[in-house]
Design a binder for these strands. Sequence first.
DNA 1: GGTAGACCTGGACGC
DNA 2: GCGTCCAGGTCTACC
Length: 318
Amino acid sequence: MGTILNINTPRDYDLARDVCSYGYFLLAPNHWDVPRSRMLRVLELDDGPSACTITQLDSGKLRARFDRALSRTEQAHARTQITRMLSLDTSAKDVRAFHRVDPRWKRDGRARLFRSPTLFEDVIKTVTSCNVTWPSTVHMNTRICEVCGRKAVSGARGFPTPKKLARIKPGTLRARCRVGYRDTRIVELAKLFAKGSVDVEWLETKATDEEAFTFLLTLPGIGPYAAGNIMQLMGRYSRLALDTESIRHAKSVLGMDGTDAQLYKQLGAHYEPFGEHKFRAYWFELWDFYESKAGPAHQWERDATASVFTASNLNARS
DNA sequence: GGTAGACCTGGACGC
DNA sequence: GCGTCCAGGTCTACC
């Protein structure tokens, strides 16, 4: 019989809203079960992978059901991973602070962003989102899990650990996961995480934003956009992660004009008043636009939605 | 410091 | 079915 964990949540927590708040919820091994409003994925734990189903009870608490019995230590690790993934550590106080700066999202309560159970997975997912259209990012993550992820009792596969990815040959990643030239960078990143060269605790909780950003730029495959994105995935919202989507947003929604370089400057100035919350102010604007085109995010099916989120499609549809 | 070009994949398009 | 073009962020060489 599998373990069941009951997890306390901040009072304002809404599983559907807060899972379907960032595109990574559409990437393997994550699966949002639209009809049943529940989150499924495999977590990597001490004694191996375990498939987990997370639902929200009427009381607001979460219930995580695993496909096998977990030891006490594994239960603690599972709680830690779920807390990170669902941003349960974003307190109601932090939410209020954000809404004071940007009251547009107070009514529906948006403030938390979905992320991965581990920083490593977020870093690799970010690399797979660079210089590629969204459908390819979806495909790469599916293949990485299928080829490199371990199988849980249920048969579902998880995201590979740093140790596992560090042992994969770049050529295998390229040929079987279709990651292209990112192959070597992904393996190098995995090796850095596996041997402890990336101090996750320091990065996530101790470093200043400037120190964290500067360090991220030293990692292979991580440039200004990727570093900015990883910053927000660590709960550091003082920077923007600007890419071609930002350019489209600047032109079509904010009515800005100019070269890309000029637009980046204008975007920086536009979101400056939001201070340490500026990424969320920017992101929820973008997300709101996506939902205006594709309907509420908690109703998005991964495969059906993948092709919608490309700059060309959104330009054509805006 | 700024710029140009290579790096890959998948989708769109023309033939 | 095949070939060509394009989108996408990072890295390196060069000025």
